[in-house]
Amino acid sequence: METTDPQSRSTANPAIDWVRVQAWVQTGILYLTGLYLVDLMLPGGQLAIYVNVENLGWLTWVGAALLFAMALGSTFELMNPRPSAFPIVIDPDYGTAQQRSRLLWNWVFLGIVTIPLVLGLGVPARPLSSQAITTELSADVTSLGLGSSSIPSSEIAPEDRNLLDWLRTFAAAPDLYEFEGQPIEVVGFMYRDARFRGTERFMVVRFTLSCCVADARPIGLVVDSPLGVNFEDDTWVRVRGTVAVQMVDGIETPIIIAESLEPTEQPEQPYLYF
């Protein structure tokens, strides 16, 4: 591209047509991004780490389909250029320093658009964990603003309630003491901050979201474990026990008195949906 004299401009046939190369690279990025999305959605894929797959998972299919459509459209265009039907405007800056710097910038921009692929394929996919909790997690169920679901959580059978259902039930209850002694079983990951170090307490935590991890918020219940706490933070555990009301951070708070504590697989959907 350095050796273009003004004469060859009209024939527009330099050694390498970099604009065309960049168009091919763009097309390649579209195919790869589409394949990445498909891979996330295949059985065993990791889409649930990123978005609400229950409500919005289908959107990713739309995305992949459009990426492939665009990639195919531009593949055909690049393989069968039809200059008569589609007049290509000759670049007036052709061969100038401006055009060269624009080409260079275009490579930088192309690099930016590969960032999702680099982070998606290069970094191990992990759901948000206790390290993603930047401020101390409140144990106060009424302060969380948990919203409501279509079915009132108190109408869900206690043995079917997940962590979010339990917290909603507690938050809506006029009197917490009515739950004292009730059996409870929840799944979540272990979370301990400075408040719990060296005690028999920890929190069992799940992230909740409605759209994608951009709106993810952690929620949790304090667990009192007289049997000791033998697991690392972020271990997924199934906690069985009974509800008790105790003072945590100076507030009457429903907590779990653990009767059994066992490690468990990370659920297929690591987040609970609002």
Partner: peptide, 29 residues
Amino acid sequence: MDGTLEIFATRFLGIFIEAVPFLLLGTLA
């Protein structure tokens, strides 16, 4: 800190994956 990059990647990809179908629809329209 260990694990920070993974969390950053997860947060970034969550926004990107959710947003990209809409960006595609918009540009196609």
